[in-house]
């Protein structure tokens, strides 16, 4: 009984705000202000219509974020996979030092970098270019991605690669046919984490992009929230939040199994 109560409390704690957003997005403004007064026009789709018919329409931000997320994830994995593999092959002391440096980099608050990054964007003319956002995103996700993938490579029995060497497989062939398929759960969970980071990132996106057609989701949502100094558009903001969450929820639902197995790989032997 106690256990069920605790689980219910935990679910309420974590899902409550989300459900409240869903509820708010479908409520008319009148019903939001007076939630306990009976109202014939409580439920509405007006907030979704407003958000989707705005200029530029909301789906553009979704697509912008999807493009940035996909390119950042791809770029990050392309660089992190060989780096994580190499970390196991370099001399032990160097590997330990590199790992420590990576942990330090992963824990570094990246917000402190955004002014410097802005200067870089100015100098290299990277402002207002959607794909250019992938560069800092992939770089900032790199330490965590390397550490996660490295532990996945560590968990693979070394004999598998030895057997492949004896069969005559080159380093690239071993990577392509053996290592990458075997660490795919860890790769999937790392990809999701990188994608989540770029999906949620705010300060860099805010400072690098000013063209409203190229905004990413977090910046666009902040604009909706702050569109009027006289009122807070709760309904529109909630509708934007729900729309912005759908791709993430789908992604996690589809890749649920590999994410869980990837994040726990190496936690227990066997």
């Amino acid at each position: 009984m106690n256990r069920r109560f605790l689980i219910a409390l935990l679910l309420l704690w974590s899902l409550g705000p989300l459900l409240w957003q869903v509820y708010t997005s479908f409520c008319s403004d009148q019903a939001l202000i007076q939630p306990f007064v009976s109202n014939d026009h409580r439920w509405t789709l007006i907030h979704y219509q407003n958000v989707l018919n705005a200029n530029p329409p909301f789906w553009r931000y979704l697509i912008n974020s999807l493009i940035v997320g996909a390119t950042s994830t791809f770029l990050c994995l392309v660089l992190a996979l060989p780096a994580a593999y190499a970390l196991n092959r370099i001399p032990r002391q160097l590997s330990v030092l590199t790992r420590l440096a990576l942990v330090g980099a992963a824990l570094f608050p990246y917000v402190l970098l955004f002014l410097a990054l802005l200067e870089l964007a100015r100098a290299l003319n990277l402002g207002n270019q959607l794909l250019a956002l992938s560069l800092p995103y992939a770089a900032l996700s790199q330490p965590l991605a390397i550490l996660l993938l490295n532990s996945a490579f560590n968990d693979l029995p070394p004999e598998l690669e030895d057997a492949a060497k004896l069969e005559g497989l080159s380093l690239f062939q071993r990577f392509r046919w053996i290592l990458i398929p075997l660490i795919s759960p860890a790769t999937a969970s790392t990809a999701i984490l990188v994608f989540l980071f770029s999906w949620n990132e705010y300060p860099i996106a805010l400072t690098w992009i000013s063209d409203s057609n190229k905004l990413t989701l977090p910046v666009a949502m902040a604009r909706i929230a702050g569109s009027s100094i006289y009122s807070v558009p709760y309904g529109a903001y909630a509708a934007a939040t729900v729309l912005g969450s759908i791709p993430l929820v789908l992604l996690v639902l589809i890749f649920q199994k590999p994410i869980v197995s990837g994040l726990t790989s190496g936690a227990v032997k066997g």
Partner: peptide, 28 residues
Amino acid sequence: AAKRAVGMVFQSYALLPHLSVFANLELG
């Protein structure tokens, strides 16, 4: 190792878990 023409059987057998028996034998 690839140039030595050595046939080795490992203690753990080192079979690739994601490939079928046929694919394991076919790879080399």
